[in-house]
Design a protein around this nucleic acid. Structure first.
Lengths: 240, 240
DNA sequence: GCAAAAGTGTTGGGCATACACCCATGA
DNA sequence: TCATGGGTGTATGCCCAACACTTTTGC
């Protein structure tokens, strides 16, 4: 900038990787895709290259849709990873150049995360597959690290903006479902009676008249999340 | 990927912008730089282009150092911004192409934030200038937005990892300084007596024997932040 | 002695925790 | 009638909030 000779500027391809969570049957799942080779680690986060002139958020939507069939609103980026040291594994580089038909010099990856309320958001014919977080093994590239960062991010967001927890649930849900979400994200058990009291005090969780049908036990009441009330009433207060 | 003709991939220059905070005399400051033209808005966040092969974190350090003289460890990225719609202002584009001597097609910006404990970290001869957050006007590009995001991020991080609040303070500090930090970041007043009690219960804030000297009032005791104790004792517990 | 900031204790109310039994339903 | 999960109340203790005066020091 002072007229002195400048080093060359970085010129990068941009990619996005998506960490998508879902809870079903008391289990926290992450959306992965199978890679189309048969080598050692064959799972990765859904992700791909951003096109020229493409908005990042749009690219994330498109890539997720293409790979898994999932249409997800509320994809939020949580951090970026520069390429250095990310693609040392020769299998990865081979796969990349094969897939992209071009020599990669460097890639900057922006990681997104999202929460969906049913595993059925994905297309069964796609390469997308839901894997329980607990049983995820070694992933391609640095995707284990990205996944870990994404989960930490989810936990932090949940503490400051608990509305995100309701994205795991359908519009109508019962309290035991909500309790399961809390248990999995905060990794702790909640007392049933106290949890009911808590929920009653959340002005943004509104009881419906409707109840479960055809269940072989007392039918539970449905509740819904009230976004307007949430915005009006929720104030995060940490006690220090 | 299926052999169908692909759209061109994004090829971007990468830039970083830094949001650096400092507290002095009960005032929260942000580090800005003056732009070297005399047009309407002449302040921006310190930032610049990343060089080829350069690690992002290193680039952020370098750029901050070059522009303001500040050597800051613990620069953390908090989100990225894709270029679309960021440089519509003709004065900005003119300035960019003038400064870079190249045609810009698009830039992806990664934003970093940091906290320093004294305004003296910057070089007075540099273009860096500390401006009270409250009195910051219109900035170049989308820097007002980035700044806002950065401050929100700081607040969120502070609630889940309060250790960051101690980065505003020198190694030895008195409780009224700590209280000022809490007040500014949480934007609320803390009762003096209750605050003392709180601090006494933080195992990671250790009293020293040393006291203030040459103050025209009762000399306050110095305290220090104990990182090891913090890691051992601090557990974030939200109450829901 | 006065101005300026440091430091200190108690009380009341509210909120989190712990805990066990009856209810409704389908099979 | 049994198995399954839904739903409810109370008592205790802890923590948070509110509140005012004395101490130390420099000038």
């Amino acid at each position: 900038m002072q007229g002195t000779p400048q080093p060359a500027l970085a010129i990068n391809h941009i990619s996005v990787d998506c960490v998508v969570f879902c809870i079903e049957n008391d289990e926290l799942y992450v959306l992965l895709v199978k890679r189309d080779t048969n080598e050692l680690h064959d799972m990765k986060l859904p992700g791909g290259m951003v096109y020229k002139e493409e908005i990042l958020d749009v690219a994330a939507q498109r890539i997720l849709k293409d790979l898994t069939g999932a249409s997800v609103d509320s994809l939020r980026q949580f951090r970026s990873y520069s390429a250095k040291g990310r693609t040392n594994d020769p299998r990865d580089t081979h796969w990349l150049s094969h897939t992209l038909n071009t020599d990669i010099d460097s890639i900057l990856t922006v990681a997104y995360f999202s929460v969906v309320n049913t595993k059925r958001t994905i297309n069964k014919e796609s390469s997308g597959i839901w894997v329980p977080l607990k049983s995820i093994g070694e992933l391609a590239f640095d995707h284990n690290r990205i996944l870990q960062d994404g989960f930490n991010h989810l936990q932090r967001i949940a503490t400051v903006e608990p509305s995100i927890l309701f994205e795991f649930l359908p519009r109508k849900f019962v309290i035991s479902q909500l309790r399961a979400v809390y248990s999995l994200i905060y990794d702790k058990e909640f007392d049933v009676r106290n949890f009911h009291k808590q929920v009653n005090q959340m002005a943004w969780v509104k009881p419906l008249e409707e109840r479960q049908k055809n269940v072989s036990h007392r039918a539970a009441r449905y509740y819904k999340f009230d976004k307007v009330a949430y915005k009006r009433f929720f104030k995060f207060v940490a006690n220090w």
